[in-house]
């Protein structure tokens, strides 16, 4: 396909990298990434991926921009309040980089729609804020064999892991199932420091680029835990669980189902 003169200039600082070069850049321009949730994590990830020259970014989110979102969801601006989040995010992505195509899905990810959506993508970035959604993404990605980056943030802490379904430890290998409702506070009860979303969202974007370019060591079989107050990163070694209910030797989950847990109060949090 070849890069245009403008593209060469726009991406020059990453083309320079030995690990990227022309072929790498062309690969990015031909890749598709789905971001589930245009919130705290999805915002910085979407902007950086667009800036890097991702060919297509898909965004799925059913909500509208709320004043409380603006403290950390940096893809949305004050004027966007009341606008659909997917529309607001698509506008910003286009403004950052007209090369990037945007697919928007104004819906909630559910067991019935998610597989049909993610199978169109090369990688999925989990930017959701609740456990059932995270398990849903994990399971759907397993069935469709699409790699994904899981992450979660709360108060001053974040965690993330990259999953290559069927090859590396999955979210269920580590956590099995969502905690009982009310045990873990959701964002609206606990609060969250804005830049924490930036730190973790950017790390997720980094994983996306590394995966697409096929360079470096992915955050697989390691759960990264970030403590903003102590400013410490910690790694927890994990491995595939032979008894995992989805990717184990005798899986009990054979089809997608929505998990039973009350989602957090999205109106107030995300």
């Amino acid at each position: 396909m070849g890069l245009t003169e403008q593209q060469i200039e726009r991406y020059s600082r990453q083309i320079i990298l030995k690990e990227v070069g022309g072929p790498g850049q062309e690969k990015l321009l031909a890749s598709k990434v789905l971001i589930v949730g245009a919130g705290g994590l999805g915002s910085p990830a979407a902007l950086y991926l667009a800036a890097a020259g991702l060919g297509t970014i898909g965004i799925i989110d059913a909500d509208r921009v709320d004043l409380t979102n603006l403290q950390r969801q940096i893809i949305h601006f004050s004027d966007d309040i009341g606008k659909e989040k997917v529309a607001s995010a698509a506008e910003k992505i286009k403004a950052v980089n007209p090369d990037t195509a945007v697919e928007t899905y104004l819906e909630r990810a559910t067991a019935t729609n998610i597989r049909g959506i993610i199978k169109e993508y090369d990688f999925v970035l989990d930017g959701t804020d609740n456990f059932p959604a995270k398990f849903l993404i994990n399971d759907a990605c397993y069935f469709e064999k699409v790699p994904f980056s899981h992450a979660g943030i709360l108060r001053f802490d974040g965690q993330m892991i990259t999953v290559l379904p069927g090859r590396t430890a999955c979210y269920r290998c580590v956590f099995d199932k969502p905690p009982p409702a009310g045990l873990v506070p959701s964002c609206s009860e606990a609060g969250v420091l804005g830049p924490l979303a930036g730190v973790i969202g950017c790390l997720q974007a980094t994983e996306v680029l590394k995966y697409l370019l096929g360079v470096g060591e992915l955050l697989t079989n390691r759960l990264l835990v970030f403590d903003a107050l102590g400013l410490q990163f910690r790694e927890v070694k994990v491995s595939r669980n032979p008894d995992c209910r989805i990717c184990g030797q005798k899986p009990s989950i054979t089809e997608l189902a929505d998990e039973e847990q009350a989602v957090c109060d999205l109106k107030a949090s995300q």
């Binding site: 890069l3 060469i8 200039e9 020059s12 600082r13 083309i15 320079i16 070069g21 022309g22 072929p23």
Partner: peptide, 13 residues
């Protein structure tokens, strides 16, 4: 560094 970028792209061809 645009000269290097262009040269590198050429070398890759």
């Amino acid at each position: 560094p645009l000269n290097f970028v262009k040269a590198k792209l050429e070398l890759e061809k």
